[in-house]
Design a protein around this nucleic acid. Structure first.
Length: 573
RNA sequence: CGGGGCGUAGCGCAGUUUGGUAGCGCGUUUGGUUCGGGACCAAAAGGCCGUGGGUUCAAAUCCCGUCGCCCCGACCA
């Protein structure tokens, strides 16, 4: 490709709307153009990157016996009504009516379409297991798009759906797919992507992993053990606590005027915060009933875990008096019977606590839950903290970090197959329901995440496996006939040798050409200049300036450099 | 959906307080001089000041409405 003919435009100024590196460079470097909130058109340079990512994904999906298919973007709502998601998903799912007045939806994920395609087709156990996948546009009316391609409303996704006749088979395939995902991310130049256990959210199902690229600009909080391989999304991370020890104390009611926050009360009573009980009050979205979560004073409530426990969306409770609660003085003993009470496992760690007395201006000290409240069940509803105890190796080795979710995998079970009536005839002659797994990777988000992980102050540094071109050929002083002739020939010869070349043949100054090349992020650079030709030399360099010092060098990049070197040698340079 | 910010040329911005002929830098076009890290000189093109209404002799500027964008939060494959 000749740079002079390429549809693109670069900017010197950072656009006011951009905050993170990938967004800044992809706008400044002419990679994409915003069309609307969370909607982008991609310029040729970006399409070339995503095409390479897609090619890698196809190879890896085919390698684990995937069959590529294509589902529709717009579908009749009927199949979404069958699965129940037409009603359970809020405004993220775009609904509209066709000219005949029929309900339609835009695909935001394709479990329904996959089951629709496979049911009646895979009617015998002999056809199982199988996996189908597609690479296609999704539309999700996100409440808030942000960060360029990191979070958009319309995007390309590789989504795969596997069908199985047994849980064991699903688990086995899930593990295979996990490995395939590791290969995909490694081949795309981000082997540092880690998988973490995750909450299954709206997808349903039990076991799920997210693939995360750790970076401070990530949207998800992750809990990672620095000592073993435990990793989890904050939403699902298990919490365990050390016993605090100490014998039970007598229950005493204390006058605590105007002491409403945990800090105030503990300071007033001279008690430790981790020997106190904090009450956090929510209401369920389903029936507006009230849930009081009791956690140890130093623990925060993990709303995702609580939500899954009470099986409802939650929102901060309004008008506590309505439920017989006394704000600031809520405690387990004598609490209103109009509320659901949940105890966190952190409350098992002490034989005595201070807590609200459910009475204006009074708190208890020395509360022993078993003695003073009775036998209660404890659930894990706390938020993991830095330095917390690892559930696997039991050391105080948890660290918190942030990550961009570039892919995820779910063991769905029969969530869709049974609601949509998918059956096959088993060996024993009976009708059975297959079970499913699903596996997704956001293509554009992955490209942006790679840029986030691999850039310098001047622009992206694309790994050669997904770089838009392998070589950028810069003709300094393309008005010089000797330079022109040499560069033209080199361009033809490199291409004839099967190397992808972006040829900057524009009559611009060196500064412009080099800074544009930096923004293109192409791994190998060849500079042809009058000065160089006079000395019989052409410059060869890598975009990543530290490449030559790298202990683990990129084989593909080395190979390309070798080829280019060979080409130059043949041309007597 | 809550909080904050912003809509003026392709991009970055000034002008709004105090109404009076729409400006600057980058980019683009033309001519010339330059030429190894975003060159210089000269000339030019390009704007319904987001949008609808109101006040006024006169509105980018004041008033009311509305739409859009960005950030934080809520939410979320």
């Amino acid at each position: 490709m000749k740079f002079s003919q390429m549809l693109t435009k670069r900017f010197k100024d950072t656009p006011a709307d951009c905050q993170i590196a990938s967004h800044i460079f992809m706008i400044r470097g002419g990679y994409m153009k915003n069309v609307g909130n969370g909607i982008y058109s991609l310029f040729p340079i970006t399409k070339r990157i995503t095409a390479k990512i897609e090619a890698i994904m196809r190879e890896e999906m085919n390698r684990i016996d995937g069959q590529e298919v294509l589902f529709p973007v717009a579908m009749p709502a009927s199949i979404w009504k069958e699965s129940g998601r037409y009603d359970s998903i809020a405004s993220e799912l775009v609904r509209f009516k066709d000219r005949g007045g029929n309900d339609m939806v835009l695909g935001m994920t394709h479990e329904e379409a996959a089951v629709h395609l496979a049911r009646e087709t895979a009617d015998s156990y002999q056809q199982y297991p199988f996996m189908i996948y597609q690479i296609q546009t999704k539309f999700r009316d996100e409440p808030r798009a942000r960060g360029g391609l990191i979070r958009v409303r319309e995007f390309t996704m590789k989504d795969a759906y596997s069908f199985h006749t047994s849980k064991e088979d699903l688990e086995q395939y899930y593990a295979r797919c996990h490995k395939a995902y590791e290969r995909i991310f490694a081949r795309c130049g981000v082997p540092e992507v880690i998988s973490v256990k995750s909450d299954s959210g709206m997808m349903g199902g039990k076991v799920a992993h997210e693939f995360m690229l750790c970076t401070p600009v990530g949207e998800d909080s992750l809990v990672v053990c620095s000592d073993c391989d435990y990793r989890a999304n904050m939403e699902t991370a298990e919490c365990i606590y050390d016993e605090l020890g100490g014998d039970a104390k007598p229950l005493e009611k204390k006058y605590t005027p105007e002491q409403k926050t945990i800090e105030d009360v503990c300071a007033f009573l001279g008690e430790d915060i981790n020997r106190s009980i904090k009450a956090v009050v929510y209401q369920k979205e389903t029936d507006d009933s009230c849930v009081v979560a009791f956690v140890r004073g130093d623990v925060e409530v993990n709303e995702t875990k609580l939500r899954n426990l009470v099986k409802s969306e939650l929102y901060p409770a309004q008008e506590l008096e309505k439920f017989g609660l006394n704000a600031g003085f809520i405690g387990p003993k004598g609490i209103s019977d109009k509320v659901t009470v949940v105890y966190d496992v952190s409350l098992k760690t002490s034989a005595y606590f201070s807590c609200g007395a459910n009475e204006e201006n009074y708190h208890y000290t020395g509360l022993n839950i078993a003695r003073d409240v009775g036998q209660v069940e404890y659930f894990d509803i706390g938020k993991a903290v830095e330095g917390g105890i690892c559930p696997t190796c039991k050391k105080h080795s948890l660290t918190l970090t942030r990550g961009i979710e570039v892919g995820n995998i779910f063991q769905l079970g029969d969530r869709y197959t049974s609601s949509m009536g998918m059956k096959y005839l088993d060996k024993d002659g009976t009708q059975k329901t297959p079970i499913m797994g699903c596996y997704g990777i956001g293509v554009g988000r992955l490209a942006a995440a790679v840029c986030e992980a691999h850039h310098d102050d001047y622009g992206p540094i694309w790994p050669i496996s997904i770089a838009p071109w392998q070589v950028q050929l810069c003709a300094l002083r393309s008005d010089d006939s000797e330079v022109r002739a040499y560069a033209d020939k080199l361009y033809e010869d490199l291409q004839a040798a099967g190397i992808e070349v972006l040829y900057d043949d524009r009559p611009v100054s060196a500064g412009v050409m080099f800074s544009d090349a930096d923004l293109s992020g192409i791994p190998v650079r060849v500079v042809v200049s009058p000065k160089g030709l006079k000395n019989g030399t052409v410059e060869l360099s890598t975009r990543d300036k530290s490449f030559m010092d790298k202990p683990e060098k990129d084989a593909a990049l080395e190979c390309t450099i070798k080829l280019v070197k060979g080409m130059l040698a043949e041309m007597n340079i």
